[in-house]
Every structure is written in C-alpha cells, then in structure tokens.
Write a protein that binds this DNA or RNA. Structure first.
Lengths: 340, 340
DNA sequence: GTGAAAGCGCTAACAC
DNA sequence: GTGTTAGCGCTTTCAC
C-alpha cells in the first residue's frame, strides 16, 4: 500500500449541509454569499448545520462556477528584502480584508522567470495582478495585453505603464541625494551598489545621482558589489575604493545595508563621517537612526505603495477608473541625519 | 456603464484547442498531463493549436475535476523578517519546481489569525500545509486533526507535533549562548528581547539562556522592547539597563538587529566590547560579520528548513513516511566572533 | 424567499 | 492511442 490515497477528499459538501438544514443547496449557497437574502430562521438552521458538520466551502468549485476568483497575483523580485516584504505585508492585509487571496511569486529580477510566473498565475483566473516595475519580456507583454484583469505596476514611476502605476521615481532619488551632497560641498563622489546588473531601480538611482553630480561639475565613481548586499564584501570594496581614489569625499549607496558596510569599514579605518567622507543610503531602514553617526538616507513609501495598490485594485474591480486616477507618484523623502 | 463586466472570462478553453487540433478534449488533457502518452504527431498538432490560441489551462477547473490541487499553504508569523522570508524563498523554489503553488499567510504571531488563515487555505483543498511552531488554537487543532493533508510544523523542535516537524530547539540556542558567555567568565547578564510577549521562540531562547546562567550561579536581567526590533529604542533601553545594573558584563539579544542597537549604544558611550561587556545576537545576519567588533551570534538553518520542509512534504505526497523520518532537528551553530 | 436545472472547464474511467 | 461519458462542488438563472 504505497501511494497514499488522496483523492475524493471526503470533505463535507454544500449538499450535505443543505440536507441537514432541510433546505436546497442553492439556499445554502445564497446564505453563504448574501446572508441577508435568506430568512432569519433558515439562516440559523443553515449556520448550525455548517457548524455541526464543520463545513468548509470549496473555493475551486466556487471559482469555476462563477468563473471568477478571489485570487490576486503579486510578483516581486525577492521577498527577502524588507522593501518588498513590507509592501507585500500591507498589500496582503488590505486585500485579504476585502476577501482576496494573494498569490505571491519571486521573479528573482529575471524577466523570463516573471513570464513563467505570470503564466502560472493567469491560469488561476486572477481578479488582479500586481507586478514590480516596468521591465517585462516581449511575451509577458503580449500575455498581459490579452488578459482583461486589472494590472498594477508598482515600485517605479515615470514610464507609461500597462494599466495602473503606483510608485516613485528612482532617478529622482538619486538626484535628491546628489543635491544634498553637493550642497554640503562635495564634488568627488562614488556610488556603491549591490545587485547593479539585475536591479533596474538601483541603476536608475545611480543614473539620477550621476546626472546631478556631473551637471554640477563633479565626478562619480561606480562600484558594483558582486552578490547580495553582503556587508563584509562592502568593507573590502570600500577599502580598495578609498585607496585608489583618495580624493573621494562622498559615497552614495544603493541601499542602507550597503551603507552600513561602508560605515563599519570607516569605523575600522577611523575615517571621520561626515568630516572626511559623507555617506548616504537608501531605504530608511530601522537601524539607520541609531548608527554612529546616524545615517542620512531616503525613505521610500514602502507601506504606502501596498496601501495604494490595494486601493486602486479594489476600485478598478468595482468601477472603471478615470485615466488620471490610474497613475500615482508617491514620491520620497530625504531623511537628513548626520552622515552627510 | 459602471461595473466592469468581468464574467465569462472569454478565455480559450481546452475544447477550442481540441477542435483546432482535430482531436478530442480528453486527448488535449492527456497531452498536457502526460505528453508521452499521445502520439508524436497529435502532440505536435495540439501544441501548435495551444500556441496559436494562446491557451492557458484553467487551474480551478482542473483542481475541481481531479479533486486535488497543487496548492501548498504556508503560514509564518511575518514575512517582514529575513528569518522566515529566506525559509519561504527556499521553500518556494523547491516546491514550485515540483509543480506546486504556495499560498502564503501572515499570522502576525496571533493564533486566532492563524486559525482564520488555515480555514481559508483549507478551502483550497491544499496538497499540503506548513505552519510555524507548535502553538495553535484549540479549534485550529481540531480543524487540522480532521484534514488529511500532510502538515509540517517548522522553525521549532522539541514537542510532539501534529504530523511532520522540521526545526531546531530555541531553548538549546539560549543555552549555547549562555555557556559561551559563562566560559568567557561572565556571570552577571541581561537578555534583551524584542517582541517577547508574542514570540514563543524568543521566550524559549530566553528560558534556555536563563536556565544555564542560573545553573552556573549567575544572574539574568530581562529587558523587553515594546515594538518591533527598533534599534533606536534599543539604545535607550540599553542606557537604562547599564545605569540601573552597572554590574552587568554580558548581554544576549533575541536577535541580531537588537544586538546591533546595543552595539551602537555602546559605541556612543565608549563601552568596550568585549572588554567591558560581552554581546551576542541570534540569526547570523549578513552584517554581523563586519560590525566593529564582529558579532558573535547563532546561525539558524533558515534555508535548510525550507529545503527539508519541501523534501518531507514531497515525500509524504508520494509515500507514507516512516515515523522516524517525520521529525528533523536541524540544530544550530554558534558563530564565535569577537564580541564575547 | 426558495428550489430545480443547467452548466463552469476540466479529469478520469472506460470503451473502442 | 483516442474518444465518449460522467461527473467534480459549486453558482446562477429562472420559475414558483
């Protein structure tokens, strides 16, 4: 007797509930979906039958019959990143309370993996789809063009987009940091980035930073970290950078974890921040308030993105949205502390 | 024309593919599930029809008809925590490549929320269920007892469990840290914890730590942080602690983020680590290698948990597992660096 | 307000 | 190897 018998799930059906409650299945169905439309007396019978039997509705059967689902697909580059996971958490909370179930996928910054995931999610006949950014493969685009489910592109802003857009401009983030550093008198700068090849948004922040610095006659040295935001690798890279470019007086980082790595290296080498070197991150992660010195950074609207994505999605499921409601630039805030 | 018409999804059905390919629907179905069992010629016809029409199978219909699903539910306290999100990521990768779709839920450390989520996941008729820890509400337990889907309790070890268990002992973690500190000659200690009331596993680590320290004649001061691992709040708490208990010579933290907050406060106050104070964290987060001084911590098997949960789940879906294969203590590793 | 009947799009026997 | 036939458990008209 190998192969556990996992068919015929033996689960209580709506018909059994109906029989016990002495009503028809369709009344049970109605009770479950719109309780007010059945008489109070039957409602009670039905509810007690449900409780007695421990009935759980079969979502698949319901979805098939109504040819619609309570599923919303969400694709992020990685959930192992507090940026996206906080957006996800907020999104989940708002959407679940409206009766939706999230189907989360990790694209790993890979458009062909994104395509695969979208295919898989679309096969669930989702009520909505949320993807990260504007970068999609050709066939993803045609897949998405053909579907009629509402789509939100999040965590970025500044391109046309497929349907709805909720995010902010990463180029503007880079400029914001650059201007702040320029204001404090720094011209010779470096940008230290993790995941530079895969992450378009990190590249956008770099581009914004570079554009502003160069426009002011400054220089920007780009340093790429090979893997993930490994703080120890950052140490070595920082060492090399400051050795080969002793003129550098400011370092902008692609995120706060990278900045933390740079900071520790400076502590080791007794490099004064911000005296000798200005340092800025991105993300406003919790620890940045208490580093020594506290880290200047940018606060991206992580939670707000989740909240507004949920709002737009829910609204578009109800009504057709006006064109000008479909695009939302949430902006960012420069958090000035003591490291610049 | 309000209310967008979202019914009759207009999607291509298997029947249409069959018609175009000049075969019966069941041959298409067979081709999709076991391609080798249809003749190469028809296979080609079918595939080209699929491509031409852009057919995507309807997962709900398939699931209903076969009364089984490729869904696996996973419940974690919060995905906003690299511990769980790395486990999730690994689990996702392994399970997806075996054709399963994860349904992820956030319990927020709340057993009644967990119950609600389990109810919702069970209504998908999942092939498997993964929950975090052993702590469940009474009705969750009876819900779980009635179902026949395989269940894994992860991230903890040491209790009987419902079905399968993959994790490690948090009590042992606390003891490990304690012994290391005792070895280095510290007797007067404190345990600084975030989320102490909600997180059983943090409490277990505390209990293990306290038991060992007290068995050796030492003392343990417990400090609870109110909210999340807010490093700045940690600073204030550390200040108060060291003021009211100047005798303390070692601090164990419920996780690395808390330890980071303590470390920064010590840098501010010029408290020598490990000279004046020993410090240890939990988690072996990336940055702990490069702090000044590098942080002694514990490496929990985050990725391994995901991997083994997937393996056990997949195995139990195939065959009945022997009792002794159902429980796995992955253990932990003390990462000795320079802070103790 | 309630029930009967007809599917939703697929899978799974079972003939052929 | 392929097609025919019944459902899977629910929702949704539409009578009553």
């Amino acid at each position: 007797m190998a192969k556990r018998q996992r068919r015929g799930s033996q689960r209580i059906t709506m018909g059994e509930v109906a029989r016990l409650a002495n009503v028809s299945p369709s009344t049970v169905s109605l009770y479950l979906r719109r309780p007010d439309e059945v008489s109070p007396q039957r409602a009670e019978q039905i509810q007690s039958a449900i409780d007695r039997l421990g009935y759980l509705p079969n979502t698949m059967a319901g979805g098939l019959a109504s040819s619609r689902s309570n599923v919303i697909g969400v694709l992020v580059p990685t959930i192992t990143n507090s940026f996206f996971s906080e957006t996800l958490e907020t999104l989940e909370r708002h959407l679940r309370s409206a009766g939706y179930q999230l189907l989360i996928g990790n694209t790993e910054f890979d458009v062909s993996r994104e395509e695969e995931l979208i295919r898989s999610i679309l096969s669930w006949n989702p009520a909505g789809l949320v993807v990260t950014g504007f970068l999609h493969s050709r066939s993803t685009l045609s897949l998405l063009a053909r579907t009629r489910t509402p789509i939100v592109e999040m965590w970025d802003f500044g391109q046309p987009g497929l349907d709805m857009v909720v995010g902010f401009s990463h180029h503007a983030c880079g400029r914001l940091i650059a201007e702040h550093m320029l204001t404090s008198g720094r011209r010779r700068t470096a940008f230290v980035s993790t995941n530079f090849q895969r992450d378009v948004r990190a590249r956008d922040r770099y581009a914004g930073f570079r554009d502003s610095v160069e426009a002011a006659g400054g220089t920007v040295e780009l340093c790429e970290l090979s893997g993930r935001s490994d703080a120890s690798e950052t140490g070595k890279l920082t060492r090399d950078l400051l050795e080969s470019h002793p003129e550098i007086e400011a370092i902008a980082c692609s995120n706060d974890m990278v900045a933390l790595g740079v900071l520790f290296e400076c502590q080791r080498q007794n490099i004064d921040i911000p005296g000798r070197l200005a340092l800025a991150g991105f993300g406003n992660l919790d620890f940045t308030r208490s580093t020594v010195p506290p880290l200047t950074t940018i606060e991206p609207p992580r939670r707000e993105i989740g909240q507004h994505v949920a709002r737009l999605l829910l609204a578009s499921l109800e009504d057709e949205l006006a064109e000008d409601e479909k695009r939302l630039d949430l902006g960012v805030r420069l958090v000035v502390r003591e490291s610049v």
